[in-house]
Design a protein around this nucleic acid. Structure first.
Lengths: 243, 243
DNA sequence: ATCTGTTGCTGAACAGTGTTTAGTGAGCGG
DNA sequence: CCGCTCACTAAACACTGTTCAGCAACAGAT
């Protein structure tokens, strides 16, 4: 069946072209800037042609994000080689924030928008597997910390601790994405904030003596140059701003 | 000038009617659901009439949010009566999260959207005043904690500590707003998460012995009923969802 | 080689959106 | 009573996402 194969291949090729064109627009200007007509123009097809490959715009963007996000999830699992649960948590937090800063539009859609995540059969199948489910991996690490007696007695609920840790790094990441460059606050560098958050949370929940870690002092040093990471000072408005 | 007064009053009345109609739609269904035509229908005017009172839709919603938000900022200042800086920080965190949960759409627009805050002359004028600038109040509290020797030596940068604390509570709040009711995670109650975050951060940065506070154990207790606060299990999709 | 059906795309439309503009009409000051 | 300002309307414009009838190319079967 060479002809059927070719048809399928051509179909796949166009789908990839659509996704590539959409990724270009999306990563640069965000969800709202991705227009079916703009995509169509970029790939030299008619807007309606896209509906042969995706049910609607939402599915298109979501496919895009999930594809890029899987790379990140798999990367997290590489931290499993770190023996010390607490150190693993610290690294986990840093990697998480890094991904968010490197892919702000993806992160915004997945974790800062209503129903950003959808739970299809494929996703639900991997739920709970620490190698492919980020939250499960985090929870597992917390659980090991608890079992090894590294956390205070009050923090014996792995889910609560995991959710708190997640909230902490999510707060740092999302605040950076949304308000980087805001002149209202004299922002410290994103690295310093990431470090301070992970250190404070680990220190606050673990039994280790405060101040014992040399790393903690590094995080608290004043390094005034704010912004960091991203070059652009201010994210462009989604709709085109006010006139 | 009774007639001119009356004109101004009538003008103000209509503006309030617009804002009230918009608030109703916005608070219930979010930014995207607020349509100028829907507002116009509610107040029995033509869509174009709104442009006589607001430059564009953005300014309308922003006026709405700022007005409601000022009430919150003023409420924060009432916490100034708490003498102990650490205790004040804990209360600050809880109040912050409470406002976010009670006004999710407002919070989403102001703190989870690009350029949610705009810095007009009125806003900039009050910047730095702890009584009217939430961040300044937070920073002041942190500063007092540092000056009273309540924090570890590493956490001597008031801005970094304030930003970390803010990120923590923002993370708890925004995760709740975006993912409340998600079945992926076995969520603890929002109260428990708020408590765990504030406790962990304060404990992680302060010199006080871990476990000394009775409150900490209360926060870590397992209370499985997740969701809390909000009645609706799942936030409606902004655009109307997939079919 | 011709018929038949499927597949993949186009062109045009529909129902929405925010926004602009010309025109209208009521009420005011002189 | 005149003119003028102001607030509003009706209608359009440009832009969305999405649908649908039709068409042309191709596949397999006759």
């Amino acid at each position: 069946m060479t002809s059927a194969d070719r048809r399928a291949r051509e179909r796949q090729n166009l789908q990839d072209k659509i996704l590539d064109a959409a990724r270009e627009l999306f990563a640069r200007h965000g969800y709202e800037a991705v227009t079916l007509r703009k995509i169509a123009e970029a790939i030299e097809y008619t807007p309606a042609a896209i509906y042969g490959h995706f049910r609607d715009k939402d599915e298109l963007i979501r496919t895009l994000c999930k594809r890029d996000f899987d790379v990140f999830s798999a990367g997290l699992a590489s931290l499993a080689s770190i023996a010390d649960p607490l150190e693993r948590l610290r690294r986990l937090g840093r990697e998480y924030i890094r991904f968010a800063i490197d892919h702000p539009q993806h992160y915004r859609l997945m974790f800062m928008s209503p129903a950003g995540l959808d739970y299809d059969a494929d996703s639900l199948e991997r739920k709970g597997d620490p190698h492919r489910d980020g939250y499960a991996f985090l929870r597992l690490s917390v659980n090991q910390a608890i079992e090894q007696g590294l956390l205070q007695a009050e923090f014996n609920d792995a889910d609560l601790v995991a959710q708190t840790f997640w909230a902490g790094v999510h707060g740092v990441a999302s605040l950076q994405i949304t308000h980087a460059g805001d002149e209202w606050v004299d922002w410290r560098s994103i690295e310093a904030r990431a470090e301070a958050m992970t250190e404070a949370l680990v220190a606050g929940m673990s039994v280790s003596k405060p101040g014992a870690r040399a790393r903690a002092s590094k995080a608290a040093r004043k390094d005034k140059p704010a912004g960091g990471v991203s070059a652009k000072r201010r994210a462009p408005r989604a709709k085109g701003g006010r006139r």
